[in-house]
Design a binder for these strands. Structure first.
Length: 293
DNA sequence: CCGCGGGCCTGAGAGC
DNA sequence: TGCTCTCAGGCCCGCG
């Protein structure tokens, strides 16, 4: 499912019920996610205080008082749901508040506060892994990730530098998590549209001969910033699986300019183009051939 | 370095 | 109603 705005929406939903709170009990109902849960998964979590809840690219990170970090990835169809049990008296003693028992709830965190946080993932492409904070820099899942697109290091100069000499398409470069970490198919399509750049353009055209950023690179960085900020503000895009942690839908899908709009009119002012779709690197690309050059 | 195809899974929607 | 087919927001691997 989720790209950066959806993961950030989930993080903001989990933060108030996790940060500073004790994990009283953990149910690992299914250990066979994309990777098997570690054998000591439950014992390394129970009794810990979550000292901070962060996000790196599409990963959620929960810092624990033990010095461990819980990494969580939503894969394609993962979601978290928070339910409060007002009747909880003893930490971890309640059963199923409001009778909610959903299929595919694979991991459930019972907080000492009475909050119940369930990880649901029909396709099981998501996963969780506990690593020590000291070993985080060597963690293979995170090691190759490029900069955060909303962070300080990501700017036109940096993007031009890593794209210089790249023969691959701009679309493929932006989907490459080593180039910039957190974009997926939807927001790459939308950012390229906003920047009026063709997904077929060679990535190296973001840099001049000497490696300086072109105006295209500056436009693209601005478009990436804008689309991510707008999507986060809207609570992400809910096409199939993405939900906020309170179960509500995100609504950025209503603001898509090209994604999932094949055959519809281009929304660029004064453009008479029609949104097209084609397969690129095995994924659907949506774009307006008339105004994206 | 690059693109491509296959694999991991389930569910939704389209077409018959 | 139900079957079969295709496709899906991620990411890894091996091949050429």
């Amino acid at each position: 499912m989720p790209e950066l705005p959806e993961v950030e929406t989930v993080r903001r939903g989990l933060e108030p019920v996790m940060e500073g709170q004790v994990i009283a009990r953990v149910e690992a109902r299914r250990g066979d996610l994309r990777f098997p849960l570690q054998k000591d998964f439950v014992t390394r979590l129970e009794g810990q205080i979550v000292t901070g809840l962060g996000r790196r690219a599409k990963y959620l990170t929960a810092d624990l008082s033990s010095g461990d970090v819980l990494l969580m990835h939503l894969g394609m169809s993962g979601s978290f749901r928070v339910v409060h049990d007002e009747n909880a008296v003893t930490p971890g003693a309640f059963h199923h508040p409001r009778g909610e028992e959903r299929a595919h709830d694979h991991v459930v965190f019972h907080m000492a506060s009475g909050a119940m946080i369930s990880f649901n993932d029909p396709r099981r492409f998501g996963y969780m892994k506990i690593v020590s904070r000291a070993g985080l820099a060597d963690e293979p899942l995170l090691r190759g990730l490029g900069p955060e697109p909303l962070g300080n290091e990501f700017d036109a100069a940096m993007l031009a530098r890593v794209c210089a000499g790249k023969k691959t398409s701009l679309k493929a470069a932006l989907l490459d998590q080593r180039v910039v970490a957190g974009l997926g198919n939807i927001y790459v399509c939308e950012a390229l549209f906003r920047a009026h750049l063709s997904p077929k353009r060679q990535a190296s055209t973001l840099a001049t001969r000497s490696g300086e950023p072109t105006d295209h690179a500056k436009r693209l960085v601005g478009a990436i910033h804008a689309v991510l900020h707008a999507a986060i503000k809207a609570g992400g895009s809910s096409l199939r699986d993405h939900r906020r942690t309170d179960g509500e839908l995100g609504y950025f899908q209503h603001s898509f300019q090209v994604y999932d709009r094949e055959g519809e009119k281009c929304r660029t002012a004064g453009c008479s183009g029609i949104v097209k779709r084609f397969t690129q690197n095995g994924r659907s690309t949506f774009w307006c051939p008339k105004c994206q050059k």
